[in-house]
């Protein structure tokens, strides 16, 4: 799997450079808005999107067909993409949080408490994890190009679930209680995300085992 990961890293060199330029633009934009909160969200979004770019490159080159003639099995093809998604999200999270802190220091003024900022950033990361965990089985099934159209639907779907979910909780006057139980909630959300990713992984495995090249 290390070889496949290296292949993605080498192949994405140019793209990563482009993303770094985009991040530099986001930094400037945060200074312009005088708030750092925009930066982690954009960072996490940008880094997580790289997974589709990497799968798009593989698809365009027909790499998976060739990879299966090497000492690589179908499960490895799936595993490497999930590992890469997690690595990308982790990088996005680390860069996002670090950038958020650094930009806050430069901007100065009154900012949200760090615990609140951190939980918002974590929530964004979990949301993107859910989006791409939904996308990956679809990409393995129908390919990146066709799946890209579904990405928007996926974004809207998950945003809608969160938005209407929060409204529903507000109607039941549960938001304050949830606010008070922030840590158990965070553990619950992360647990749910882990379960969701595992389910997505097993669906992808099932798809790739039946796929033909």
């Amino acid at each position: 799997m290390k070889g496949l990961l290296l292949k993605d890293i080498f192949n994405l060199r140019k793209v990563i450079k482009q993303y770094l330029l985009i991040l530099a633009f986001f930094v400037c934009y945060c200074f312009f808005l005088k708030t750092p909160s925009f930066f982690p969200m954009m960072t996490i979004m940008s880094f997580s999107m790289i997974i589709l770019t990497s799968m798009g490159y593989d698809e365009a080159a027909g790499f998976d067909k060739f990879a299966l003639t090497l000492p690589v099995n179908r499960e490895d093809l799936v595993r490497v993409k999930y590992v890469m998604l997690l690595i990308l999200l982790l990088i996005g999270l680390v860069v996002g949080i670090s950038g958020n802190l650094i930009i806050s220091c430069f901007i100065g003024g009154e900012q949200e408490p760090f615990a609140e900022q951190f939980s918002s950033i974590l929530a964004v990361a979990v949301m993107f994890l859910l989006v791409y965990a939904t996308m990956l089985p679809v990409v393995f099934k129908i390919g990146v190009e066709r799946a890209r159209m579904l990405l928007m639907i996926c974004y809207i779907g998950i945003f809608a679930v969160i938005f209407f979910g929060l409204q529903f909780l507000a109607e039941l006057n549960l938001l304050d209680r949830i606010e008070a139980a922030r840590i158990p909630m965070a553990v619950g959300i992360v647990g749910f995300a882990a379960f969701y990713v595992l389910a997505s992984y097993f669906i992808s495995l099932k798809i790739i085992r039946k796929r033909e090249w």
């Binding site: 292949k7 593989d58 067909k65 060739f66």
Partner: peptide, 23 residues
């Protein structure tokens, strides 16, 4: 195969390093 299936962005040195970890 009749086509080369290495992704476009790779160089021969990259393929060498990648294959070292595959084979």
């Amino acid at each position: 195969f009749d086509e080369c299936y290495f992704p476009d962005g790779l160089q021969a040195v990259d393929i060498n390093r990648m294959m070292k970890h595959i084979y």
